[in-house]
Design a protein around this nucleic acid. Structure first.
Length: 565
RNA sequence: GCCCUUGUAGUUCAAUGGAUAGAACUGCGGACUUCUAAGCCGUUAAUCUAGGUUCGAUUCCUAGCGAGGGCACCA
């Protein structure tokens, strides 16, 4: 439709004013009352030829009226010189029919057809708890993954667990000094006591490390065993903790609705990264016994890639990670998600890596999430720091249960996750989120459960009508009460496309709220199933299209819709 | 000190350089007692400051003020 209008306008401008290449836009006005499309062409032309914009617009409209074709119903001038177009209703009804004909395809596009997209997100620190920051990462990562799927790409999702670090050495030290191997072996597999104990190892180990120099030496020795994979009780204890930690990670992300095709471990990336840095002494120069990259040459700052003790730092590991990603998956686009505090850091890594392989820098997209700050005390962690994912989810699920204890456990979980994910996804990614469970977390108004409820409600309507042998079916000349909804529905694919261009899921959230509000408002003032069977069937068809659109939209966001609520 | 991000109703968030800056929560007021009230209808309320570019600026540029993050061997 946009293409048709653009072409038509170019033709009109050429014939009337004899100019070409006017960079006008054809877009949806914010308000539906302004029409279906609007263009600023007259404003731009008037500037070029020095005429009054309204006059220019009127001339254009006169021309367009005579050439408008079957899709355009009305052309008019508005405001300072905008030209508004109203499309024929047939245009929208045809789109809605398309939703009903192929619900599973509604919203998909071919922006990345046949491309390989690699996604990395939710990367945990083994031995440390999976906290609320990981949930943010996971939620955004999963949404971007699904957007990629909707764009026709062949998507692989991986995670990059941190499995070697001094911190892990500390945890293993405590594990060994507290007969911890016995303790976690005795506890039921993936029980909360087992996991809590592992978390304590990290905290206690860190505390011990800070208090005693001898312990520091022991911890470093253990860390070296882990790096070098030296057989022995240290490495065995490490392997046990690692296995439990990883299994736990898979468990938590599964609860959130995502799974991974593969892992690249930090220990692998470390080996690869160190090798690459040592191979490229032209890029990584020596300074104070360390290998550094002087980012100043690209307007950035210097970072250390191999420290003076000869160990690869996080920087080198990230270079190794890039190498492994492109070698194993050969993606056209590689996307990864981190906390936004890594933005500047990664620019340096990308700049350095780009000098080894241009593609590693050019094909990588870094998306970030902010921090979640907590005002209320309700969900502060047992560990005193950042709240643990499991605890947050349990607390929200408990609130859902208090609202309606009759719902199945699975539905309660779905609603809780929707509430939490919504809070994360509604905001432009990268910004901090003030999360006050008392006020931010909502089940009413703009919220995940509101969207779920709307879809469930539409579904209930159709089910009820089914008992009266009424089937959803679009009619040729229906009443006007569904016109607005038809127009809102039609925009879904554009919204998905826009969201994919920027990899910014919050656009979908905003759209779904708009759709849900339009639907609920209509529902509130219209009797959908009434005596007139023809009208009822048309309205049901609209309700079904709304249901499909919300379900598909929420699917992209990683939110499931229950049968009932 | 330098660099990046950011500043919108009382609160939490929106707004590809466009038309009357949208929602939700909160407050206040309503309707129905008929398809799911986690709903609907009404109402009060905002672009940090000062310049600039533009027909037009919340959006772009400059300066200031405030917030968050980063800046050599942690991850």
């Amino acid at each position: 439709m946009q293409e048709i209008l653009t072409q038509l306008l170019n033709q009109a401008i050429g014939e009337l004013f004899g100019i070409q290449d006017v960079a006008f836009s054809v877009e949806h006005p914010k308000e539906f009352v302004h029409g279906d499309f609007a263009t600023n062409a007259a404003l731009l032309i008037s500037k070029q030829i020095g005429k009054n914009p309204i006059e220019v617009a009127l001339a254009l409209v006169a021309y367009l009226e005579n050439h408008k074709g079957e899709y355009i119903e009305k052309v008019s001038v508005a405001g300072p010189g905008f030209i508004n177009f109203v499309c024929n209703r047939e245009v929208f009804l045809r789109i809605v029919q398309g939703i009903l004909d192929a619900p599973q395809d509604w919203g998909k596009n071919n922006m990345h057809e046949a491309e390989k997209i690699l996604l990395e997100h939710s990367s945990p620190n083994l031995f440390k708890p999976f906290h609320i920051g990981h949930v943010m990462n996971n939620t955004i990562g999963e949404a971007i993954k699904r957007l990629a799927v909707y764009s026709g790409a062949e998507v692989s999702t991986i995670s990059y667990p941190s499995d070697v670090s001094l911190g892990i050495g500390k945890a293993v030290w405590f594990l060994l000094h507290d007969e911890g191997v016995q303790k976690i072996s005795d506890a039921p597999y993936l029980s909360s006591e087992q996991l809590n104990y592992l978390g304590d190892c990290y905290v206690q180990g860190t505390r011990a490390y800070e208090s005693d120099e001898n312990i520091q030496k022991e911890v470093r020795a253990i860390t070296k065993c882990i790096y070098d994979k030296t057989p022995g009780p240290e490495y065995d204890a490490y392997l046990l903790g690692r296995e439990i930690s990883l299994a736990y990670f898979k468990n938590v992300v599964a609860r959130l609705g995502s799974q991974f095709d593969d892992f690249i471990f930090e220990s692998e990336a470390a080996v690869e990264g160190e090798k690459l840095v040592r191979q490229h002494t032209d890029i990584f120069t020596q300074s104070d016994g360390a290998f550094i990259y002087a980012g100043e040459q690209d307007g950035l700052h210097t970072r250390v890639f191999i420290n003076k003790e000869g160990y690869p730092t996080y920087e080198a590991k990230d270079v190794g990670l890039l190498a492994l990603k492109f070698a194993r998956f050969v993606p056209q686009i590689s996307i990864f998600i981190t906390d936004h505090e890594q933005t500047e850091y990664f620019k340096v890594v990308a700049s350095a890596a780009g000098k080894i392989h241009k593609q590693w820098q050019d094909s990588t997209i870094h998306r970030t999430h902010g921090r979640m700050s907590f005002k209320g005390q309700k969900m502060s962690s047992r560990l005193g720091g950042v709240p643990v994912a499991q605890e947050v989810l349990d607390a929200i699920t408990e609130e859902v249960r208090e609202r309606d204890s009759s719902l199945p456990k699975q539905t309660q979980d779905m609603i809780a996750i929707a509430a939490l994910k919504f809070v994360i996804l509604r905001t432009m990614a990268g910004r901090n989120i003030n999360f006050d469970p008392e006020t931010s977390l909502s089940f009413e108004g703009d919220s995940g459960p509101y969207l779920q409820y709307t879809a469930v409600r539409a579904g209930a309507l159709i089910a009820k009508a089914g008992h009266q042998h009424l089937v959803p079916k679009l009619m040729k000349t229906p009443l006007e009460d569904t016109e607005l909804l038809e127009k809102v529905l039609a925009r879904f694919t554009e919204v998905v496309a826009h969201t994919t261009e920027e990899w910014a899921p919050h656009y979908i959230v905003t759209y779904l709220l708009e759709l849900a509000q339009a639907f609920n408002s209509w529902y509130g003032q219209t009797k959908i199933i009434d005596e007139d069977a023809t009208l009822s069937m048309h309205r049901l068809a609209i309700a079904q299209a709304v249901q499909i659109t919300i379900i598909n939209g929420l699917w992209v966001l990683g939110i499931e819709v229950p049968e009932k609520m």
